[in-house]
Nucleic acid binder design. Structure first.
Lengths: 361, 361
DNA sequence: TTTTGGCACTCCAGATGTGCGAGTGCTAAT
DNA sequence: ATTAGCACTCGCACATCTGGAGTGCCAAAA
């Protein structure tokens, strides 16, 4: 029989590995040599396959659960698999339609958009879907309003250019100078429009003496309002849906793995940090690979060593303002899921830009 | 031996039942006659105890998991047990302190109050804690503001007397008459202040012709704003914390029970309805029993047949505006938990009233 | 009449054993 | 380089066994 060149050999190995992973993803059970020999794409005997699998195991792509079980892909194998999925072949039109239908109905507010998005992700993937709301870090103040509530409380309403509305009560010990409300509001709007949220507080406190031109009263008033309104608050607006889905998977039978996972989902703050970290590292500089995949131990959090995270970001203009994605088992249909996440990211981007731009822009 | 009167007999039975439940709550394992005989409070032989337990079983208070296991309390037994816990003896001062400390720090906004409350409940109980935000049904509109965003969008901000702020974008097809903003705002505030939220929409739409006095333009404008601003939106503001806690309990080992439960917690909307229903039935009319307990099958939802729900409501003035509580296994330390929930309800009531009333009232 | 000790009985839980099948690794033949 | 064949290894499912915990009932004691 003809001698195989090293290149051909490697190529075959790769094909075999893909077959193993593919099969394992489908069934979730360790896959043995006999089965693969049965499939038509590889035309080899079980014995040969065994040899190759042996190699792959030595190179760290496969493992045995125990001596006489089939092979199971390692994280390294998944990584290889995902990397080779550059194609990202278009979803069948049908599925694309499905996404639209499921998602596009009645979203008018940011809040609804987030809710709808996480739910859609969860339903279509059958795993856990999440979205982070447009981050305060990335947004700029567009408008600010001070609404008097009573003699010693007023409500500061802040609207960001991403369409997110935040509000905050400002409480005074005694009655505040009501007549200064409007002038202050004007000043604030003048100075703050377009400022990134993160800096708004310091900038303003730094330059607040400029207000002094008017009145001594105003100074204290302005300072207090600023302090309170822009005090760092609860962050981590993250929407999670379908946490239950993931629990019904066979691989999470042990109550230990399971609890870990729920713990992650429970601690939304932590989850938010994790996701932001994932996307924060390399800024929007790199021509973005659109969809990122973290497999098992590649994740920062050890609690997520048994799951994979597929995420993408959505943008407003050219700023990436939020992240969305799904959390599922390591063995999942990566190509479909990556597509789903990708589509959703685009959908959200579109929706967001239209919402903020208004219907006529 | 002396004859026992029926009364004495019943009394003993009761004591025995309590002992069984108590023990089962502690250990989670079926309790047998021998064990109870060992305890000093009952001074009876195992045989006698068996007899009595037999009776209790026939009356539906106890069951066998299988022929030769100890007895396990039924829902009926738990109900009995809870009903007999009228005492609600004060928590040890220490624990009361703990609640204060854990909870009272830095809550200034309703949102933070809710967050902090559910978290506190969860941490102190080690189960799952929840709070429903002050219901829209129970609140009245206190103030309303219309903030122009751009040529065809404005933001309606509504403040309820419970301190909850809602906002909503109103989008116009074309530009709206900006000069009518202030008059409309005034009119709205005049007519709507003090109206219950639930009715605000119809009332206004009914009487909207009254505005007609001014201008024809105004009519359409006002109608559109009203429609959009008060359109029924996402309801179910419910905060849930510590969903993970409950999963680590031995009784939820089977993935089936477990998934049910997570499902409930996942579907916050459903959970909210459930809870509201629980408290909606008999209005605030009855001198309120402060803390309510639903055990297993007493719950409306079949998904909750394996857990108990301990809840109480908090009030603003004399209106009960929200519900809080914990979800835990049927076998839990009812007296302690009921106390906890009770305390928390009082704490939230205090905080809420102070917040809304302001620091000087 | 009530309580109690005794006893037979039941049934689960855990330990132990067995056969089977799936899958491997190696070697010798092709 | 590939393949067939074969011995070997384990885990899994199943049956079997056994100890113990707990019951129900009965007859004796209080």
């Amino acid at each position: 029989m003809r001698t195989l060149s090293t290149i051909e050999h490697e190529e075959r190995k790769r094909r075999l590995l893909q077959a193993v992973i593919h099969q394992y993803i489908k069934t979730g059970k360790p896959v043995g040599s006999a089965f693969l020999a049965g499939g038509r794409s590889l035309d080899l005997s079980p014995a040969t396959i065994r040899n190759v699998m042996g190699e792959l195991e030595r190179e760290g792509y496969l493992t045995h659960p125990h001596t006489s079980a089939g092979r199971v892909p390692t994280d390294k194998a998944y990584r290889f698999y995902v990397d080779s999925l550059v194609d990202l072949q278009r979803l069948a039109i049908k599925e694309e339609e499905r996404i639209r239908q499921e998602h596009e109905s009645r979203i008018r507010e940011i809040n609804e958009l987030m809710l709808s998005t996480s739910k859609t992700l969860s339903v279509l993937s059958n795993y856990t879907g999440f979205v982070t709301a447009p981050g305060v870090d990335q947004s700029r103040l567009q408008h600010m309003e001070l609404i008097p509530l009573d003699a010693h409380r007023l409500l500061a309403v802040m609207v960001s250019d991403t369409g997110v509305v935040k509000h905050r009560q400002v409480v005074f010990e005694g009655p505040y100078p009501r007549e200064l409300l409007e002038p202050l509001e004007q000043t604030l709007n003048q100075r703050l429009r377009g400022q990134p949220f993160t800096r708004v507080r310091e900038t303003l406190l730094d330059h607040i003496e400029a207000i002094h031109q008017r009145q001594m009263d105003m100074l204290e008033f302005a300072r207090h309002v600023t302090e309170e309104a822009f005090a760092p608050g609860e962050s981590a607006d993250i929407y999670v849906e379908g946490a239950g889905n993931i629990l019904s998977l066979p691989e999470f039978s042990g109550p230990d793995d399971l609890r870990q996972l729920v713990h992650v989902l429970d601690e939304k703050r932590a989850l938010g940090d994790l996701i932001r970290e994932e996307w924060g590292v390399q800024g929007s500089g790199a021509r973005f690979p659109a969809v990122r995949v973290s497999i098992g131990s590649e994740n920062r959090s050890p609690d997520m060593k048994n799951v994979s995270l597929i995420s993408s970001c959505y943008t407003l203009g050219d700023r990436q303002v939020g992240v969305l994605g799904i959390i599922g088992p390591k063995r999942m249909e990566y190509s479909r899921m990556m597509n789903l996440v990708n589509q959703m990211a685009q959908a959200v981007t579109t929706a967001l830009n239209r919402m903020v731009g208004g219907p006529h822009e």
